[in-house]
């Protein structure tokens, strides 16, 4: 077993263990920190696929921004009655549905052939930058506009209306 495979399995275990923590725990703050662990595990998976720039982006945006925003949302909403919010009577159906979806995905992974190379190769940052800012420059600008519109919408929805009431 090569070293990279060991690193891959550790990262995958962190990602999947954190994900299980998110869906299983009865404490919502633990769920937020499990989400952080899971996202860092995903960043490790990115590193094993030589996507070091995206691993950095993952740590910065998810670890630095998204989990913090979720924790602020938890602070602003009441979480005392979380105990009876965490479960759901439909959980056996949910488990069955997600198990079937997982089975279907794995079956489709093994029944389709993809034209790939034998071992993974790094996508250079140069390549990524050229593709992003030459070929995909217009969608990139539109994505920044979408982000701007979404954040203005957030401010309008949460902030301004509160003052009028």
């Amino acid at each position: 077993m090569s070293l990279s495979l060991i690193v891959f399995f550790i990262a995958a275990a962190i990602a999947l263990g954190g994900a299980l923590g998110v869906v299983m725990t009865r404490n919502i703050v633990y769920a937020a920190f499990s989400l952080l662990a899971s996202l860092m595990g995903v960043a490790g998976l990115f590193l094993t696929a030589f996507a070091e720039f995206l691993a950095l982006v993952q740590v910065l945006i998810y670890g630095g921004a998204i989990v913090i925003v979720i924790l602020f949302a938890l602070m602003l909403t009441r979480i005392q009655d979380f105990e009876n919010l965490s479960g759901n009577r439909q959980w056996p159906v949910a488990a069955l549905v997600s198990a079937v979806v997982f089975g279907l995905l794995v079956a489709s992974v093994f029944s389709t052939t993809v034209r790939t190379v034998a071992d993974r190769q790094a996508v250079s940052l140069d390549d990524l930058g050229r593709t992003l800012f030459e070929q995909w420059a217009v969608p990139f600008e539109i994505a920044s506009l979408v982000l701007l519109v979404a954040l203005i919408g957030v401010v309008v929805m949460v902030g301004a209306n509160g003052r009028r009431e």
Partner: peptide, 20 residues
């Protein structure tokens, strides 16, 4: 990726808190 997706799907279907 399939396992992560299935776990996320289970969370969406079985939780009642909107944040979760």
């Amino acid at each position: 990726a399939a396992a992560l997706f299935a776990i996320g799907l289970y969370g969406v279907l079985s939780r009642r808190s909107a944040v979760l």
